[in-house]
Computed example of a mutant assay.
Amino acid sequence: MHNLFIESIKKRRSQYALGKNLTLSQAETTELIQEAVRQAPSAFNSQSTRAVILYAEHNQALWDLVKESLRPLVPADNFAATKTKVNSFAAGAGTVLFYEDQTVVEGLQERFALYADNFPVWSEHANAIAQFSVWTALANADIGASLQHYNPVIDAAVAAHWDIPSNWTLRAQMPFGSNEGELSEKTYIADAERFLIFA
């Protein structure tokens, strides 16, 4: 069976060998990311996901900040490996920081009290869909990316450096750039472990 969407999402892979030679201009890359976030669905059309897009010295500053935040937490004899890994993200063209606006979530909890406990969960769903949408859109433009989670270790430092609104909660970091290495093949668990079908 051929399906355009399935073929599109098959291109998405974790790319750790990143470079700065994008196939799109910075403006085109920004618009691609923005449009992918805009088109991502959210419960009650809440549109609670926020994105911060960092390029050039801002991208480098982020990953320098990550290293400094991790330094006191990682044993000294292991820090060289951590530094190498983080530097591979800094080698890319940019990073998308994914946030959730808690004011939106809290507003929905107040307006729809019956579902109050669910809105934080649905907010996380919306953010995950936005991450997947951006990642897939980048992959289809031949731009490599991966998804990282250095929050909450870096949250306060990032918020202070870029004056992030206090009601935004950091959920993930997506470094992106040109594909400078081969992408690994994806493996799958057996269908019998994953699906139940009743017909």
Rank of each mutant, 00 (worst) to 15 (best):
T23D: 10
G107P: 07
E124C: 02
E28N: 05
S184P: 06
R38Q: 01
A160N: 00
T169D: 14
K10Y: 03
P72A: 02
Y16K: 07
A27C: 06
S178I: 00
L183G: 14
N118Q: 13
V96M: 15
R71W: 10
L18R: 00
E35N: 15
D163Y: 09
N21C: 04
P165V: 04
F79V: 00
Q109C: 00
A141W: 01
E182K: 14
V52M: 13
A36D: 11
W168D: 02
N179G: 08
A159K: 11
K20D: 00
W63C: 14
E180T: 04
S42E: 09
D163Q: 13
L114M: 12
K186D: 13
A56D: 12
L196C: 10
P152Y: 00
I197C: 15
L24K: 03
Q15M: 10
A93W: 04
I129L: 14
Q26N: 14
L22E: 03
L54Q: 05
S146H: 12
I197E: 12
I33P: 10
E68G: 07
F5S: 15
L73Y: 03
L170P: 02
K10Q: 05
V37Y: 07
N87W: 02
P175N: 00
H125Y: 09
A80Q: 15
A141E: 04
W122E: 09
L70M: 10
L114Y: 15
F5Q: 15
G177P: 06
E57N: 14
L4H: 12
I189C: 10
D64R: 09
F44W: 15
N59D: 06
T23I: 01
K10L: 13
R50V: 07
T187H: 07
S123F: 07
D163H: 11
A139F: 03
A56T: 12
G177Q: 01
